[in-house]
Protein backbone atom coordinates (compact mmCIF):
# COMPACT_ATOMS: atom_id res chain seq x y z
CA UNK A 1 0.00 0.00 0.00
CA UNK A 2 1.36 3.39 -0.97
CA UNK A 3 2.23 5.74 1.88
CA UNK A 4 0.00 8.73 2.28
CA UNK A 5 1.22 11.79 4.13
CA UNK A 6 -1.40 12.85 6.65
CA UNK A 7 0.60 15.35 8.69
CA UNK A 8 3.54 17.60 8.06
CA UNK A 9 5.22 19.82 10.61
CA UNK A 10 4.99 23.50 9.74
CA UNK A 11 8.07 25.21 8.34
CA UNK A 12 7.23 28.11 10.65
CA UNK A 13 9.09 26.41 13.49
CA UNK A 14 12.61 24.98 13.49
CA UNK A 15 12.64 21.35 12.35
CA UNK A 16 14.66 19.79 15.17
CA UNK A 17 14.37 22.12 18.13
CA UNK A 18 12.33 21.14 21.17
CA UNK A 19 10.41 23.94 22.84
CA UNK A 20 11.34 24.87 26.38
CA UNK A 21 7.78 25.29 27.58
CA UNK A 22 6.52 23.46 30.69
CA UNK A 23 4.30 20.37 30.40
CA UNK A 24 0.69 21.45 29.99
CA UNK A 25 1.65 24.88 28.64
CA UNK A 26 -0.25 25.99 25.54
CA UNK A 27 2.33 28.36 24.04
CA UNK A 28 3.61 25.53 21.83
CA UNK A 29 0.20 24.95 20.25
CA UNK A 30 -0.22 28.63 19.44
CA UNK A 31 3.27 28.80 17.87
CA UNK A 32 2.41 25.83 15.70
CA UNK A 33 -0.82 27.46 14.59
CA UNK A 34 0.94 30.71 13.66
CA UNK A 35 3.46 28.73 11.60
CA UNK A 36 0.80 26.66 9.86
CA UNK A 37 -1.45 29.59 9.07
CA UNK A 38 1.30 31.82 7.67
CA UNK A 39 2.66 28.90 5.65
CA UNK A 40 -0.82 28.44 4.15
CA UNK A 41 -0.89 32.14 3.32
CA UNK A 42 2.46 31.69 1.56
CA UNK A 43 4.02 34.44 3.67
CA UNK A 44 6.58 32.65 5.86
CA UNK A 45 9.41 34.48 4.11
CA UNK A 46 7.82 37.81 5.02
CA UNK A 47 7.05 36.97 8.62
CA UNK A 48 8.56 39.13 11.40
CA UNK A 49 7.89 38.31 15.02
CA UNK A 50 8.13 41.08 17.59
CA UNK A 51 8.49 39.29 20.83
CA UNK A 52 7.51 40.39 24.30
CA UNK A 53 9.31 39.57 27.52
CA UNK A 54 8.24 36.67 29.71
CA UNK A 55 7.50 33.09 28.68
CA UNK A 56 6.37 34.50 25.33
CA UNK A 57 10.07 35.27 24.81
CA UNK A 58 11.00 31.60 24.80
CA UNK A 59 9.60 31.23 21.28
CA UNK A 60 12.69 32.83 19.73
CA UNK A 61 14.51 29.55 20.26
CA UNK A 62 12.36 27.53 17.95
CA UNK A 63 10.50 29.72 15.48
CA UNK A 64 12.14 29.75 12.06
CA UNK A 65 11.32 33.33 11.07
CA UNK A 66 12.77 36.78 11.82
CA UNK A 67 12.58 37.78 15.48
CA UNK A 68 12.91 41.22 17.03
CA UNK A 69 13.08 41.14 20.81
CA UNK A 70 11.19 44.10 22.25
CA UNK A 71 11.72 45.60 25.68
CA UNK A 72 9.12 44.47 28.22
CA UNK A 73 5.73 45.83 27.17
CA UNK A 74 6.97 47.64 24.07
CA UNK A 75 6.14 45.11 21.37
CA UNK A 76 3.29 47.15 19.85
CA UNK A 77 5.52 50.25 19.65
CA UNK A 78 8.35 48.26 18.09
CA UNK A 79 5.94 46.61 15.65
CA UNK A 80 4.66 50.07 14.70
CA UNK A 81 8.19 51.05 13.68
CA UNK A 82 8.72 47.79 11.80
CA UNK A 83 5.44 47.71 9.88
CA UNK A 84 5.50 51.43 8.99
CA UNK A 85 9.02 51.06 7.57
CA UNK A 86 8.52 47.67 5.96
CA UNK A 87 4.85 47.46 4.93
CA UNK A 88 5.55 44.40 2.78
CA UNK A 89 6.54 42.37 5.86
CA UNK A 90 3.95 40.35 7.75
CA UNK A 91 4.40 41.57 11.30
CA UNK A 92 3.03 40.12 14.52
CA UNK A 93 3.64 40.68 18.18
CA UNK A 94 3.61 37.75 20.55
CA UNK A 95 2.92 38.86 24.11
CA UNK A 96 1.76 37.59 27.46
CA UNK A 97 -0.69 39.27 29.84
CA UNK A 98 1.95 41.00 31.98
CA UNK A 99 3.70 42.31 28.88
CA UNK A 100 0.63 43.40 26.93
CA UNK A 101 -1.88 44.34 29.63
CA UNK A 102 0.30 45.68 32.46
CA UNK A 103 3.60 47.30 31.54
CA UNK A 104 2.64 47.62 27.87
CA UNK A 105 -1.01 48.62 28.11
CA UNK A 106 -0.33 52.13 26.77
CA UNK A 107 1.48 50.78 23.72
CA UNK A 108 -1.27 48.20 23.14
CA UNK A 109 -4.19 50.64 23.39
CA UNK A 110 -2.42 53.33 21.36
CA UNK A 111 -1.41 50.96 18.54
CA UNK A 112 -4.95 49.56 18.46
CA UNK A 113 -6.38 53.06 18.37
CA UNK A 114 -4.07 54.13 15.53
CA UNK A 115 -5.20 51.02 13.70
CA UNK A 116 -1.64 49.85 13.14
CA UNK A 117 -1.69 47.23 10.43
CA UNK A 118 -0.17 44.29 12.27
CA UNK A 119 -1.37 41.24 14.16
CA UNK A 120 -1.22 40.72 17.90
CA UNK A 121 -1.15 37.26 19.44
CA UNK A 122 -1.94 37.70 23.12
CA UNK A 123 -1.50 34.82 25.55
CA UNK A 124 -3.60 35.30 28.68
CA UNK A 125 -2.88 32.78 31.43
CA UNK A 126 -3.65 35.08 34.35
CA UNK A 127 -0.17 34.97 35.87
CA UNK A 128 3.46 36.01 35.37
CA UNK A 129 5.07 32.78 34.24
CA UNK A 130 8.76 33.37 33.69
CA UNK A 131 9.33 35.48 36.80
CA UNK A 132 7.68 32.85 38.97
CA UNK A 133 3.96 33.33 39.48
CA UNK A 134 3.42 36.97 40.40
CA UNK A 135 -0.01 38.59 40.09
CA UNK A 136 -0.97 39.72 36.59
CA UNK A 137 -3.64 42.25 35.62
CA UNK A 138 -5.64 39.20 34.52
CA UNK A 139 -5.23 37.16 37.72
CA UNK A 140 -8.64 35.98 38.93
CA UNK A 141 -10.23 37.13 42.20
CA UNK A 142 -9.15 34.79 44.97
CA UNK A 143 -6.36 33.29 42.87
CA UNK A 144 -3.07 33.08 44.74
CA UNK A 145 0.09 34.57 43.31
CA UNK A 146 3.55 35.03 44.83
CA UNK A 147 2.84 38.76 45.14
CA UNK A 148 -0.75 38.15 46.28
CA UNK A 149 -0.10 35.28 48.68
CA UNK A 150 -3.57 35.53 50.21
CA UNK A 151 -5.25 35.66 46.84
CA UNK A 152 -6.29 38.58 44.64
CA UNK A 153 -8.66 40.89 46.49
CA UNK A 154 -11.00 43.34 44.80
CA UNK A 155 -10.50 46.00 47.48
CA UNK A 156 -6.74 45.86 47.10
CA UNK A 157 -6.11 44.86 43.49
CA UNK A 158 -9.32 45.56 41.62
CA UNK A 159 -10.95 43.15 39.19
CA UNK A 160 -9.14 41.27 36.42
CA UNK A 161 -8.57 43.34 33.31
CA UNK A 162 -10.42 42.38 30.14
CA UNK A 163 -8.34 43.31 27.13
CA UNK A 164 -10.77 42.47 24.32
CA UNK A 165 -13.60 44.31 26.08
CA UNK A 166 -11.32 47.28 26.78
CA UNK A 167 -10.11 47.54 23.18
CA UNK A 168 -13.63 47.08 21.81
CA UNK A 169 -14.43 50.52 23.27
CA UNK A 170 -12.18 51.95 20.55
CA UNK A 171 -13.59 52.63 17.09
CA UNK A 172 -10.47 51.77 15.13
CA UNK A 173 -9.55 48.09 15.69
CA UNK A 174 -10.51 45.70 12.91
CA UNK A 175 -10.65 42.37 14.69
CA UNK A 176 -10.70 41.43 18.39
CA UNK A 177 -11.30 37.86 19.44
CA UNK A 178 -10.86 35.77 22.58
CA UNK A 179 -10.30 32.09 22.03
CA UNK A 180 -8.69 28.97 23.51
CA UNK A 181 -6.74 25.87 22.49
CA UNK A 182 -7.90 23.43 25.17
CA UNK A 183 -9.86 21.10 22.85
CA UNK A 184 -9.36 20.05 19.21
CA UNK A 185 -12.49 22.02 18.38
CA UNK A 186 -11.07 25.18 19.97
CA UNK A 187 -7.71 24.64 18.27
CA UNK A 188 -9.49 24.58 14.91
CA UNK A 189 -11.40 27.75 15.82
CA UNK A 190 -8.25 29.52 16.99
CA UNK A 191 -6.48 28.51 13.80
CA UNK A 192 -9.28 30.16 11.83
CA UNK A 193 -9.08 33.33 13.93
CA UNK A 194 -5.29 33.58 13.63
CA UNK A 195 -5.61 33.14 9.89
CA UNK A 196 -8.19 35.89 9.70
CA UNK A 197 -5.98 38.16 11.82
CA UNK A 198 -3.09 37.72 9.38
CA UNK A 199 -5.36 37.95 6.33
CA UNK A 200 -6.64 41.28 7.68
CA UNK A 201 -3.06 42.53 7.72
CA UNK A 202 -2.42 41.33 4.17
CA UNK A 203 -5.59 43.15 3.12
CA UNK A 204 -4.46 46.31 4.92
CA UNK A 205 -7.42 46.33 7.28
CA UNK A 206 -5.51 47.32 10.40
CA UNK A 207 -5.20 46.17 13.98
CA UNK A 208 -6.18 42.57 14.74
CA UNK A 209 -5.75 40.92 18.12
CA UNK A 210 -6.23 37.27 18.99
CA UNK A 211 -6.35 36.65 22.74
CA UNK A 212 -5.77 33.03 23.65
CA UNK A 213 -6.82 32.10 27.20
CA UNK A 214 -4.37 29.44 28.30
CA UNK A 215 -3.25 27.55 31.37
CA UNK A 216 -0.08 27.78 33.41
CA UNK A 217 0.08 24.56 35.46
CA UNK A 218 3.51 25.43 36.87
CA UNK A 219 2.56 28.76 38.39
CA UNK A 220 -1.06 27.95 39.11
CA UNK A 221 0.25 25.05 41.19
CA UNK A 222 -1.81 22.42 39.40
CA UNK A 223 -1.16 19.31 37.39
CA UNK A 224 -1.76 19.75 33.67
CA UNK A 225 -5.13 18.02 34.01
CA UNK A 226 -6.23 20.10 37.03
CA UNK A 227 -5.13 23.23 35.18
CA UNK A 228 -7.40 22.33 32.27
CA UNK A 229 -10.34 22.04 34.65
CA UNK A 230 -9.50 25.42 36.23
CA UNK A 231 -9.12 26.95 32.78
CA UNK A 232 -12.55 25.77 31.67
CA UNK A 233 -14.41 26.38 34.92
CA UNK A 234 -12.83 29.62 36.16
CA UNK A 235 -10.85 31.33 33.40
CA UNK A 236 -13.51 31.01 30.70
CA UNK A 237 -16.10 32.26 33.18
CA UNK A 238 -14.11 35.45 33.79
CA UNK A 239 -12.90 35.74 30.20
CA UNK A 240 -15.78 34.70 27.92
CA UNK A 241 -14.61 33.35 24.58
CA UNK A 242 -15.95 34.96 21.43
CA UNK A 243 -15.55 37.59 18.76
CA UNK A 244 -15.54 41.08 20.29
CA UNK A 245 -15.02 43.00 17.06
CA UNK A 246 -15.08 41.99 13.45
CA UNK A 247 -15.56 44.99 11.20
CA UNK A 248 -16.07 42.70 8.19
CA UNK A 249 -19.18 41.20 9.79
CA UNK A 250 -20.43 44.56 11.07
CA UNK A 251 -20.25 46.02 7.58
CA UNK A 252 -21.85 42.97 5.95
Amino acid sequence: MAEKKVYEKTLGVMPDVISGFCPGCMHGTVHKLVGEVVQELGMLDKLVRVEGVGCCGLGQQFVSHDVIIAAHGRACAVATGVKRCSPESLVYTYQGDGDLASIGLDETVSAANRGENFTVIFINNGIYGMTGGQMAPTTLIGMKATTAPFGRKVEEHGYPMHVCELLSQLKTPQFLVRTAVDTPQNVIKTRKYIKQAFQNQIDGKGFSLVEVVTSCPTNWGYTAKEALTFLREKMFEEFPLGVYRDKDKEEA
Binding site: G12, P15, M43, L44, D45, D66, V67, V82, S86, E88
Partner: peptide, 11 residues
Protein backbone atom coordinates in the same frame (compact mmCIF):
# COMPACT_ATOMS: atom_id res chain seq x y z
CA UNK B 1 14.44 41.95 10.14
CA UNK B 2 11.94 42.21 7.30
CA UNK B 3 11.19 38.52 6.69
CA UNK B 4 13.40 35.74 5.33
CA UNK B 5 13.18 32.15 4.22
CA UNK B 6 12.37 29.73 7.05
CA UNK B 7 15.46 28.83 9.10
CA UNK B 8 17.46 31.63 7.44
CA UNK B 9 15.99 34.10 9.83
CA UNK B 10 17.51 37.29 11.18
CA UNK B 11 17.45 38.30 14.83
Amino acid sequence: CTGHEPCKQHF
